Amino acid sequence: MRALWKNTVIAESDDTVLVEGNHYFPESAVNPQYLLPSNTRTMCSWKGEASYYTVFVDGDALPDAAWTYRAPKDAAAEIQGRIAFWKDVKVVE
């Protein structure tokens, strides 16, 4: 799977975890040069607290387009250490 924005590969891995229609990439498969930490946080009743990143490519920012659960609840343990994408970031095979 690949995560793309503006024809740039943000992440690529054969080892994603699919949860609620979102592919969670291992952190090691995500190019950190394209992510800027965000102050945004949300809460999921069964996964826990999500922390967000702004995707940044060629001077353009896509706020809060990536997220991770740094300390997920037990029910979501399989996504710990993984990052997912949404908004205009396309995830394709």
Score class of each variant (00 low, 15 high):
F25P: 07
A76I: 03
S45Y: 13
Y34V: 09
A66K: 03
S51T: 12
L18W: 06
T16I: 11
D60V: 13
D60R: 09
V57C: 03
V19K: 08
V19G: 07
L4Y: 06
I83H: 07
N39H: 08
A61W: 01
L4K: 09
D64M: 05
N7P: 00
R2T: 06
M1K: 11
L36R: 15
P37L: 10
Y34R: 02
A50K: 03
E93K: 09
S28Q: 09
R41S: 08
Y34K: 04
S28F: 06
T68F: 00
T42F: 01
Y52T: 04
T8Q: 03
D74I: 04
T68P: 00
Y24E: 07
R82H: 10
E93W: 05
F25S: 06
V91C: 06
L35R: 06
Q80P: 03
E49M: 14
E20Q: 07
L36H: 12
S28W: 03
Y53K: 08
K87D: 14
S28D: 14
R70I: 04
I79N: 09
N31T: 11
M43R: 06
A76T: 05
E78A: 12
A75V: 10
T68Q: 12
V91P: 05
T42V: 04
V91R: 05
L62R: 09
V17T: 12
A76M: 02
T16W: 05
W5F: 10
V92C: 12
E49Q: 15
Q33C: 00
V92L: 14
A71N: 12
P63E: 11
E12L: 01
G21S: 09
Y34E: 00
A65R: 00
L62K: 06
R70L: 13
V19L: 14
I83M: 05
A29K: 02
V30R: 07
T40A: 15
W67C: 02
A75D: 12
R41Y: 04
A29T: 08
L35Y: 10
G48R: 02
A61G: 12
A77Q: 12
Y53R: 09
A65V: 09
D88H: 07
V91G: 07
A84V: 04
D88V: 10
D15T: 03
Y34A: 08
R2I: 07
